[in-house]
Design a protein around this nucleic acid. Sequence first.
DNA 1: GGGGTCATGTAATAGGTTACATGATTCT
DNA 2: AGAATCATGTAACCTATTACATGACCCC
Lengths: 209, 209
Amino acid sequence: MSRRRIGNPLALAVLVTLAERPMHPYEVATTLRSRAKHESIKLNYGSLYTVVNALLHFGLIEPLETGREGGRPERTVYRITDPGRLEMLDWLGELISTPVKEYTQFEAGLSLLPALPPSEATWLLQERGRRLEADIGRLRAVHAVAKEKHLPRLFSVESEYHLALLRADLAFTTELVQEIEGGTLDGLEVWRQLHAAGPWSGAAPEEQG
Amino acid sequence: MSRRRIGNPLALAVLVTLAERPMHPYEVATTLRSRAKHESIKLNYGSLYTVVNALLHFGLIEPLETGREGGRPERTVYRITDPGRLEMLDWLGELISTPVKEYTQFEAGLSLLPALPPSEATWLLQERGRRLEADIGRLRAVHAVAKEKHLPRLFSVESEYHLALLRADLAFTTELVQEIEGGTLDGLEVWRQLHAAGPWSGAAPEEQG
DNA sequence: GGGGTCATGTAATAGGTTACATGATTCT
DNA sequence: AGAATCATGTAACCTATTACATGACCCC
């Protein structure tokens, strides 16, 4: 996100789509939408023309032809350039080959967990478990439909990856709840005491650095 | 991130730290740093005073006392307010209880995978596998040290969660490589043909929407 | 004739990061 | 003597999202 001239993931999606064949921006958007790319990539179609202009500015795409039909606004068909193709390969390659720390909401929450009383934490974690189960159920249903339609798995690997992560998340959550409830979590006593003497009482917990 | 008046995770970290005891901003930062919270929460200490001002503005914290020692800049000790405590509980509760779609880099990459030739994809995935193994190794080493120091596991749940995700990621990646190399991935033929007839040839792949 | 979609674009705003600025104190 | 740390703050900047604006075409 730092040294790459354009960081918006929509730009990569546009590049990939134009690598397939030249299109005008709106068609790129409908293509991406029809393939439900917004479910696996954080896309904001409102930024479409901004992004297209940026790609144009850096020479990653170029206008192929521009015409109008009837009284509709003039539309420009763009194609990907050689530098654009390079950028796409490099960018996509990086996404695939290089794991980066992602800072998930839950990880942040867990690292602040001691600030909640154990009983409330337990309840919240159980709630999370239920929601994860529901999410998993929905995703599996989607996969079942995809299978019925004989869509090759190649085109839903991202969804299977997501499912794998959800399962790992659920397993972790369930186990954590059990450890708290079963009293086997190391540190549980400290945690209880922290909240026993009044609301998050003045006593400072031990330093961990 | 939308309806919450302050969305910056640093603000939550500040609230939690001040819930423990009143401090001046700089001390909050050193506390967070010493506990290595930046490893599990995306914190930008450069935004510290901006965030503190925002918290103050919305009445989530308030100045307790303000003094100066020697010729140093005057420093203000803040404490959390009742609304601040509420906000903290609500926010933290949401992070724990409610799974949200996170849009990881890898998932984005996977959803665009067909744009890469299978051979290159395989190589990139293998590279990812190696890096994940290294990451996992490092994390396990950290955990071993923590165990030696007898730090209660309660204070490293976030790290164990992260480890669980890394493992799931690695398992998925390894399996995907095997399916491509073993030729058992459904859609592999389409994929090969897509790239056989020239560079990401003009042939449009089937619609999937 | 009215609502939705086709199709493009821009201006304002929001949100956060970076860089800069200051100056004393403490460590080496 | 010089570097690092203590301690605070602000202004500029960047990036992206939101909202607005326009107008023709198509279906019911």
